[in-house]
Design a protein around this nucleic acid. Structure first.
Lengths: 211, 211
DNA sequence: CCAAAAGTGTTAGGAGTACACCCATGG
DNA sequence: CCATGGGTGTACTCCTAACACTTTTGG
């Protein structure tokens, strides 16, 4: 018990270029120097787990007010060769229009990777990523987390692309739109996105109006 | 970071007397001396989180090989007045025919409480219990955790009672039995339970036989 | 014979899935 | 004019939920 430490690691997702991507940082010091890892760090003495996650998230991305949810805690005694380190893993979703802000202290060493093409990861981070991916895919089915990945105004086509990127499969356009319509959480706007061919109506996320 | 410690707390459920019950222990020492709490303890230096949970579970109930699942980690810096203690909460299900074994070191100070009638709890254990209850109810809908609470042989009426106790509402008998039958995980036995009126057929939990 | 739990089908509504064509625009 | 993504409806299946009566036994 003498030397136990606790970290918070955060799997940060975004959807970019039609693919679900995750933010990874290259480690500069041993162990696993030169390998990529999920961003994270030790918790401070006076902050809650979630506060630590929010702080790390802000340090890595410069963004606050993201969707953030605790994922799972990993505590194998040998997961970190330096000693006993338990990690509480979180996952976060960052909207595509906010991710220009990928600065942070080690900007040059951080990068987005498609989840289908992640390099070998340090520690047990492969397992943590797999866990986050599974959670995200499940939550997509019965919650509205998907909307967190879009800007305030978006088209139904963009929304569908986000779903397809996360689930990694094509969805039927008509069925998708009916399903979304049934949720009654989108407000159609009188604005259209003129991006190429036929203009697409913009929508924004909104709680259903009580009639 | 100097003084951080990690505990594992376990919400142990059973169904008894038609009610969902939880095992609580009375604290003998401050803080919260005399109040009830969820069983738990500090993790050892060389054991994984799950191993710690299994160990605590065995210490409290004398039983091994229960259903056990990690729930959530709680880390508010002021959740324990003694100092910084993070807890990784688990929940476990113990079959009604095994719970005579409620011995353990502090047997006299441990007891089962219906979840609808728990006394005030120490620390943030009320919150942990609420979290476990929510998880259990959700898992009941789309997994087969409910079977963990029954002996090897049971009647459909007993199974339905377990579901009703957990969900705290009555279920339709015909719909329930159809739903269970569709799962194809029960093997009807040539034995009947003669307990009062019309004998009820016994079943056992079994993976579906591949035709 | 009676109280009590066991056991059993049908119908209606809602959600998911499969599937094909016309529309509006920019180039 | 044409390539491209936007936009729309129907039919079928499956799951859920509501609902009532007969059967078997012990006392």
């Amino acid at each position: 018990m003498s030397d136990l430490r606790v970290t918070v690691d955060i799997v940060i997702f975004t959807v970019r270029d039609g693919a679900l991507q995750v933010l990874l940082v290259k480690r500069g010091v041993p162990p696993f120097a030169g390998q990529y890892a999920i961003p994270g760090g030790f918790i401070h003495a006076d902050e809650s787990l979630e506060a630590a996650a929010i702080r790390e998230l802000h340090e890595e991305t410069g963004v606050r007010n993201l969707f953030l949810e605790q994922l799972y805690s990993f505590g194998d005694p040998r997961r970190d060769p330096r000693g006993r380190v338990i990690t509480v893993a979180y996952y976060a979703l960052i909207a595509s229009d906010k991710l220009s802000v990928v600065a942070g202290a080690d900007a040059a060493e951080a990068g987005w990777f498609a989840v289908t093409k992640v390099p070998p990861l340090a520690f047990d981070h492969q397992q943590i990523l797999a866990c986050a991916l599974e959670r995200l895919r499940n939550k997509l089915e019965y919650t509205t987390v998907g909307f967190q990945l879009l800007p305030a105004k978006f088209t139904l086509g963009e929304l569908q692309s986000v779903y397809e990127a996360i689930l990694n499969r094509k969805l039927d356009k008509r069925n998708f739109r009916r399903k979304i319509a049934l949720l009654k959480i989108l407000k159609p706007l009188r604005q259209y996105q003129h991006t190429g061919r036929k203009p697409a109506q913009l929508h924004r996320f909104a709680a259903p109006t009580k009639s």
